[in-house]
Design a protein around this nucleic acid. Sequence first.
DNA 1: GACCTGCTGCGGGGTG
Length: 708
Amino acid sequence: MKWPSLRPIQEEAIHAILKSNADVLISAATAAGKTEAAFLPILSEVHENPTPSVQAMYVGPLKALINDQFGRLEDLCQRAEIDVHRWHGDVDAGKKNRLMEKPSGVLLITPESIESLMINRNTRLPSVFRGLKYVVIDEIHALIGNVRGTHLRSLLFRLRRYVEHDFRIVGLSATLGNAFSDYAEWMRPDRDREVSLISAKDEGKQLLYKIHAYTISKPDAHTSCSADESYKSTGAMPQDMFRHFSGHKNLIFANRKSDVEWFADELNSQCRAKNLPEEFLVHHGSLSKEIREYTEQEMQKERPRTTVCSSTLELGIDIGNVRSVGQVDPPYSVNSLVQRLGRSGRKKGEPQRMRLYIREEDVDEQSELTDRLHLDLLQAIALSELLLSRPRWVEPPRLVSWDLSTLTQQILSTLAETGGCQAGVIFERLCRRGGFRSMPPNVFSELLRGLGKRQIIEQMSQGDLILAPDGEKVVGHYSFYSAFQAPIEFNVIAGSETIGRLPVESLPQVNDHLLLAGRRWQVVAIDDEQKVILVRSSPGKAPPRFLPNGGDIHERVRQKMREVLLASSPVSYLDSTASRLLQNARNAAAFSDIAKGSIVALSPNKILWFTWTGTRTQRALMLIAEVLKLRPVDHHVALELACSQTEATEKFSAYAKSTPNAIQLAEELPFKHINKFDYLVDDTLLVQGLARDYLDLDGALWLIETIS
DNA sequence: GACCTGCTGCGGGGTG
């Protein structure tokens, strides 16, 4: 390959893989040569001991990533005469059939396609995977701690049945943080193999970092101004963004797809006003594949281009050398801030550049206390402080203990794989020796009974369980293969071009204006049958609507926000507005005694309880306050309660003394169906899972103790 | 208060 030398992580990986029997985790920035680090030793071994079977399997979270890696691995493998195959939804059936008939070499695949193999190609599995020695999991941080990771882990355990000798796992990631043990636990719950860690040294890159703040006037409650109106009052922010980013190659991340569209349009309007070519592109998950690929290709060229994007460009898709990264509004985790920052300054000697843009409401003495604390700015500073701290802290993955939705999917899949099976055998494969180790046998039986009651599965006279006709329908539909829930969407089409998709729950009306793919449209017609929205070009503009879908914020981030608020030292990377707003927030905090106690009385019958805690604990507190009939309002870092301080303290203490239990509390949740297959599970079981994974009662009780 | 991801088999029509 004409490389002058190997990188240190590549040399280390060769030793770890060839000279030991351990599983391996490789942690290094994107484009640091992780794929080669894993595959150089693996391919050497495959080359020396060829067998008529797939010998190494690469699992990637994105089709685009698999396509990228396919090219690179083909280059490496050609000379060694090792076959490389890819398998995902866009690969044609002929190629798939050929692999099934003559399995060999390296297979690149998605978790969902492994699921489809289990169901549709089960008779071929022994010959295809008999000689499997290595499973390489790319971007492993994107899979651990969510249902997709639980799914993949279960599939890998199921696959072991077809493998002659147990395979080793090599995980690749750019942000492991200090959570090595969580990853090791995920990979080897039985600790039957060592897991060794190989991580690239911090290169000590120069970092240019700035937070810009803007005040926008609060939408007037009396004129009931729509959410769209607030977009119009962002003031000097788009102009500054244009000055900071035009003429170079950059990425600007926004938290919402509607913001991506809005800011791309604002920035391109400025190009037009200045008679410059439009240089701002868009990238997010509701755009058509063609438009996303166009943006990815444009970013690889030399021309100055800035892409406004959602988290789609956080993962390893190759988008060339990015000069600086922008971020509109504070992100939600240190993890994602690290990933985003890491997209800039990849060239040797280039600094990393990050600009955060924070929108804060204009406030005065009369404004609500929570508004006067400028919580978005505080969150941005808190995340920045955690990002800049050494050693750096990032959120550890949360290993979900009772994913009943994905277990249900795996039960149905096992029945399809085997054509019928004893309950005990399923329990053995999926739970006792599978991915769902913490599942007690009695809960598993109850889950099966629930599926029987719903006529999804049935028991034959000899005792074997099989799929009932309704179960066959669930498994037979192509949407079965993924463990995660996806919304129903309408395609947006202009002429013969598919632009993107919009969720059925928030469709526009005919004649409405719409921004999508960085262009302005008007809706011509909506076809409910075909699920199609026809649009044509039009000068009017309105941001598109997508579904809100809140995620979790870690408690450490909220604690850091409190620390920043109660400190008095200046923060070095703020612009003048941000400094002024931080000082105002600190003054408001001092004036309202937030430092002294966590409860602030707003009126005789209204208090704010500052909890500064993570989403799971806050959720539990909200539910408890509901149960206590305190009419709570969630301000994220605080609870607003309709009572006096004495009443709140008394009621919460009494609750804490009543030996509360998490399951009873979970029963109070208004919506219990969170994940894809929850509709096949009895509520009595779901609340047990929710009590473990969705609410943090212990954290809530601990906070209650601090106020009583 | 948010973002992202994935999947099949078949019929119809065009091309070599």
